[in-house]
Simulated scan of single mutants.
Amino acid sequence: MVRKESLAQLLDEGRRKIQVTDEELAEAKRRRRLLAASVRRAFAGSTAYFNGSVAHGDANTPLTDVDLGVVLTKKDAEPYGPGKKSALTLMEIARDAIHEDIGDEFPKLTIEVEGRRRAILVRFGDPVTPGQADFTADVMTAIPHPSGRGLYIPNTKIAAQWDRADPITHTRMVLQAIEDTKVVFARTVRLLKHWNGTHSKPMCSWNLKALCLNCLDEPMPLINALQVFFTYAADEIDKRPTPDPAGVAGPIPLNMPRADVYKRLCTARKYIDLAIEHEKDGRPVLAQHTLHQVLPELVAKPDATEEEADRLARAVRSGGPAATGLGLATGLVTTTRTRAWGD
């Protein structure tokens, strides 16, 4: 007997496989607190902020890094900024303070400043997730923007040495979306980050989240959230690069040409649409097989008998060009894994 699960069950099981564990999260947050205390001590009167996957509530396992920043007071920030001093001195101060404060607890600790674009890189020499090589932290030294909106953050790769950004608002927007969707936002992002990593990483994680902020604003099943995302994201990427949700920084860059990203998004959207159609029409095994193309490591290929696979293949062939065009007409009886690359 073939085990038949709904798409909702398959996705719930899948996101649980990659969700960060309580133990990983607790240790990552503890180390983040240590770093925040250290940089606040180094810069009297400063404030620390948290961003990235741990702060946004969408971290996956294995957990390998954490992100945070420190914002100087207006007075201390006066010598720094575009046309003034770079952040190098600030980065060196932060490095020395962190070494002094946590070096004894982490004897393999190393901190990189030279050549870093935006933040110092802290290598603990001690992983949070068993079996991983290490655990790292990006610690950014930022200054207030004169307008009061956002920050100036370091960018050692450009002449001005500073970029405008608003990571604090980004985190607030993500947390609000998680609340508004009753956690669906974070769970969808987890799945999307896995999809992204499985299919050549066409986009950075922040781009995925920025797009989600504009299309996921209420609770819904995860399969529908994926459908909404891929539909919206494909249309948006086809038109333009993703703008900064906070309206402060420039467009979010892609990891490959926009046409290629669009292609991958369209392919994933077609698979999701077809999976939903199969489930609606009472073909759960075929629905699972279709969803497997999008999330191959999270949704298992159906364990159908040859007879069942043959029947399903015939059903796909009779389903019209949409199924055939996605490569599903013969995929049920082959051991070769097909991915929604869009190539």
Results as ranks from 00 to 15, higher is better:
T64H: 07
G69Y: 07
R33M: 01
D65Y: 04
A42H: 01
S46I: 14
A36G: 02
D58W: 09
S53Y: 12
D65M: 04
A42K: 10
E27S: 01
D67C: 04
A37T: 01
V70P: 00
A28L: 03
D22F: 01
A55Q: 09
R31H: 02
A59P: 08
Y49S: 00
A37Y: 00
A42D: 03
G57Q: 10
L25G: 03
R30P: 04
N51R: 04
R40F: 00
A28C: 04
G52V: 04
G52R: 08
A42M: 09
D65C: 09
R31L: 05
S53V: 13
A28R: 06
L34R: 08
S53I: 10
D58K: 04
T21W: 07
D65K: 09
V70W: 02
V66Q: 09
E27D: 08
L34C: 01
V66K: 10
R32I: 01
A42S: 10
V70K: 05
A44V: 15
S46V: 14
V54L: 14
P62N: 12
E24W: 11
V66D: 14
E27V: 02
T61C: 02
H56V: 01
A36R: 05
R31K: 05
V54A: 13
P62D: 11
G52I: 05
G45S: 10
R30I: 04
T21L: 06
R41W: 00
A42T: 05
G69T: 11
E27T: 05
G57I: 08
R30Y: 13
T47V: 14
A26H: 11
G69W: 05
P62Q: 11
S46T: 09
E24H: 09
K29G: 02
L35A: 08
F50E: 15
A42L: 07
H56K: 12
A48C: 12
L68S: 05
A36D: 00
G45D: 07
L25N: 08
G57R: 09
D65R: 05
N60W: 00
N51I: 07
T64V: 12
A36L: 09
G45Q: 09
T47P: 00
A28F: 01
E24M: 13
A28T: 03
G57A: 07
T61A: 05
A48K: 06
G69Q: 12
G69L: 11
P62I: 11
G57D: 12
D67F: 11
D67A: 05
V54G: 14
S46A: 15
T61P: 02
K29A: 03
R30V: 06
D58R: 06
F43S: 08
D58A: 11
R41E: 15
D58S: 13
A44C: 07
D58M: 10
F43A: 09
L63N: 08
L25D: 11
E24Y: 13
V54Q: 13
V54H: 09
T21P: 02
F43C: 06
A28S: 13
F43V: 07
A48Y: 15
R41L: 06
S38F: 06
Y49R: 03
T21N: 03
P62G: 10
Y49E: 02
T47H: 14
A55F: 07
F50R: 14
E23G: 01
F50N: 15
L34Y: 03
S46H: 09
G45Y: 13
V70R: 06
A42C: 13
R31F: 00
D22A: 14
K29T: 06
T21K: 06
R32Y: 00
T21H: 03
A55L: 08
N60S: 09
H56E: 15
D65E: 15
